[in-house]
Design a protein around this nucleic acid. Structure first.
Lengths: 183, 183
DNA sequence: TATATATTGAACATATCGTTCGGTAACGAA
DNA sequence: TTCGTTACCGAACGATATGTTCAATATATA
């Protein structure tokens, strides 16, 4: 990728992050991003078709980073055979998020973020699917699989939102315990 | 209230409902509402400050209707002393929603409805608070009250969304059972 | 160096918003 | 019925944001 392209893309992402920490996604205008990133209008549109596609690309880079590190071999094996709360992928997820790499907290804490959460849920779904067996013993047989999977995903997302909304005073270990106690 | 005002307000609400069944809230323009309701532009703005306030007023009328009927004396007593799944307020809520009075399903099924869901959650919260004792025996003492309350509300909303998303093939009784099995 | 490509920024057409205002129609009380 | 009040109309307006175009300029890579 051309160095100019990289620089522009980085500048846009940086400004986007900065603006997201100040206001809701819906209130951010392309004009503001351009002004903050100090790039030409046509340049922005040569990189991203619309503001929505910017968010999409932004989320993809962010989640790719987060969920991929959760999937590496080191942990993958552990969880298939030994899946207690102590070293679950979910603990690692909470830990990773609490480190605030790539300013993911900015997005998670923002208010009008339903679009962002849709992307997050989507990636989370594949992770949960790979861990479904872990939760099999908690599941009442009367519940449909699709309901159960949705419930786990929702509980994780809501636990995360509650955690952030409460100022993240609990440790990742504690919040993981809450998650397992709730689901 | 002046008859003309009532007619205009009704026309706006009707068009709003119709449009919501066709597209997301964010994609609906004031111009479309005006055209569909066949009213003057200034008239719309004399009734509602913005499109957001229209949604707010719409939700208030809708939820007031739904949650008030859930609170009437007939059921209120039952649930304080006898709170099994069979005749819970939540069953009544699911039943009421499945009847699709006031086209609430249109709103619940629409995609970009986080604003609407915020209003719904808000009213649901007071209902859940009045029913908290019902869930006390399921709650692990390690979980904070605020987390627990949020979990119940979230589980209800997500159960409802799952139900609608799946075509509402289950009966209100069954979906109430799912809700109690999940929470 | 030379060619290809990215960036620039002004200008443009389009769309939506929310307001204004003089004129018209409907209401409801006396 | 009359009459004062109030709601509705609808065209027009300024403001803001969108996404595109284009010719000139700057930068990268071979």
């Amino acid at each position: 990728m051309d160095r100019r392209q990289r620089r522009t893309r980085e500048a846009i992402f940086n400004s986007f992050t900065r603006l997201l920490s100040q206001k809701d996604f819906s209130q951010i205008t392309v004009g503001e991003i351009i002004a903050d990133a100090d790039i030409g209008r046509a340049t922005f549109y040569s990189h991203f078709e619309t503001k929505d596609y910017l968010l999409k690309a932004f989320c993809e880079e962010l989640f790719c980073h987060i969920f991929d590190t959760e999937h590496n071999e080191e942990y993958a094996h552990k969880h298939i055979f030994q899946c207690d709360g102590a070293d679950s992928v979910f603990l690692h997820l909470f830990q990773h998020i609490s480190k605030n790499d790539n300013n993911i907290l900015v997005l998670l804490a923002s208010q009008n973020n339903e679009l962002f959460l849709r992307y997050f849920r989507n990636d989370l779904e594949t992770l949960v699917e790979s861990q479904l067996s872990t939760f099999q013993d908690r599941k009442d047989p009367r519940l449909p699989d699709s309901f159960w999977k949705n419930h786990i995903i929702s509980t994780f997302v809501e636990t995360l939102k509650w955690w952030i909304g409460n100022g993240m005073t609990e440790s990742p270990e504690t919040i993981t315990e809450y998650f397992y106690l709730a689901v």
